[in-house]
């Protein structure tokens, strides 16, 4: 999409009045376009400022206790999305199994090839983009990738692949290579408000490890990953713009 096409629809995007296809296309453009993000921020300010000026009115005092009580009750009720640990599939259809299985096999195969051939993590990152079209055909709204790097030693390098499904079958895949590293490491996906603990990485003697999850939870807000061991940060990565 061009800047003009995106700007033309930003107000509707902000107000949530676009169909899913248009909304996803704009979201993709925004990730890589600071100018349009700035425009969106201005429109957002317009809505917020207008709301304060046009319709701010103190509610009855007793409403506060009623709402806080309702929230307290709500917290006692398990919510499948909010509480989903997503360590392992929560709800998997045939499609999800197929997508996850094929992807894991394909990407892991590429990973192994890349490791053997070059030993460079950057190749794994490039591999991820090859599956975008394939995954899109399975109902995915987007495939996002992040390079995983370590701040020090031992040296970690790898890739995070997040597949945002519009059919409640999103999944995430973490592939890493850490020569000489042994044992397990914890993998956590992060959104601005939540975290998801993935199944721990279990490193082979070659230094390779992978883990994945399939979940009905919405993974779109999750855009970074950390790998830790006993609370110490080993490596991290953040999803890059398109």
């Amino acid at each position: 999409m061009t800047h003009e096409e995106v700007r033309d629809q930003l107000a509707e995007y902000l107000l949530g009045d676009l169909d899913d296809v248009s909304e996803q296309a704009i979201a993709r453009h925004l990730r890589g376009c600071g100018t349009c993000r700035q425009e969106l921020a201005s429109l957002s300010e317009g809505v917020s400022t207008f709301a304060r000026a046009a319709h701010e009115l103190d509610p009855p005092p007793e409403l506060r206790d009623r709402v806080l009580g309702a929230l307290s009750e709500e917290r006692k009720t398990p919510d499948p999305v909010r509480s989903a640990p997503a360590k392992r599939p929560r709800r998997m259809g045939v499609l999800a199994w197929a997508a996850a299985f094929v992807a894991v096999v394909l990407v892991s195969g590429s990973l192994a090839t890349a490791v053997v051939a070059t030993g460079r993590a950057s190749d794994w990152h490039a591999e991820a983009s090859k599956y975008e079209a394939f995954l899109g055909a399975l109902g995915g709204s987007n495939v996002r990738t992040a390079k995983i790097n370590s701040p020090g030693t031992p040296s970690f390098a790898g890739t995070l692949v997040l597949y945002d499904s519009d059919r409640d079958q999103s999944w995430g895949l973490v592939l890493v290579h850490a020569p000489g590293f042994q044992g397990q490491a914890q993998v956590t996906l992060h959104s601005p408000t939540h975290t998801i603990e993935m199944h721990p990485l279990e490193f082979e003697s070659s230094g390779d490890a992978s883990t994945w999850l399939v979940t009905g939870a919405d993974l779109r807000p999750f855009n970074s990953v950390t790998i830790t061991q006993h609370g110490s940060l080993l490596a991290s990565g953040t999803v890059t713009s398109d």
Binding site: V47, S48, L63, A70
Partner: peptide, 25 residues
């Protein structure tokens, strides 16, 4: 509306995307 909104905010807290606009909006 106030009550329903806060309950929905709680249920959908992880869907808030700062990149899409400020929290107020």
């Amino acid at each position: 509306l106030v009550q329903d909104t806060f309950v929905k905010l709680l249920r959908n807290a992880d869907r808030y995307d700062p990149a899409r606009g400020k929290l107020d909006t």
